[in-house]
Amino acid sequence: MYGTKKAEIRKNDRGYKAGDPLLPREWDPEEEEYTGRIVRRVITHVLADKQFL
Rank of each mutant, 00 (worst) to 15 (best):
D49S: 04
V46D: 03
V42P: 01
L47M: 07
T35W: 13
A18D: 03
V42Q: 12
Y2F: 14
E31D: 09
A7E: 15
M1R: 05
R37L: 09
I43C: 00
E8C: 10
P21V: 01
G36A: 11
F52A: 04
R37I: 09
R37S: 07
E26Q: 15
D20A: 01
Y34S: 14
G19M: 08
G3Q: 10
G15E: 12
P29F: 05
K50N: 06
A48F: 07
A7V: 10
Y34V: 10
A7I: 11
T35C: 15
E31I: 03
E30R: 10
T44P: 02
D28S: 07
A18V: 09
A18G: 06
L22F: 01
A18R: 08
Y2I: 13
T44N: 04
P21A: 08
E26C: 14
Y34I: 07
E30S: 08
I43G: 01
R10Q: 10
P29E: 04
K6F: 09
D28L: 05
K6Y: 11
N12L: 04
K11G: 14
A7S: 15
D49P: 00
V46M: 01
R25M: 08
E31H: 06
E8D: 15
E32H: 10
Y34G: 14
V46A: 01
K6L: 12
R14M: 07
D20Y: 01
E8V: 15
K6D: 07
R41W: 08
L53F: 13
P24Q: 04
Y2W: 13
P21I: 00
P24C: 01
V46Y: 05
Y16N: 02
A7C: 09
D20Q: 00
Y16P: 00
V46L: 02
D20N: 06
Y16Q: 03
D13I: 15
A18K: 11
P21N: 01
G3M: 03
E31P: 00
T44D: 06
L53C: 13
T4W: 10
V39Q: 09
D49F: 03
T35E: 13
K11T: 12
A18M: 05
I38Y: 12
Y16E: 03
K11A: 13
R41V: 07
D49K: 05
A7D: 13
I38G: 02
K5C: 12
V39W: 08
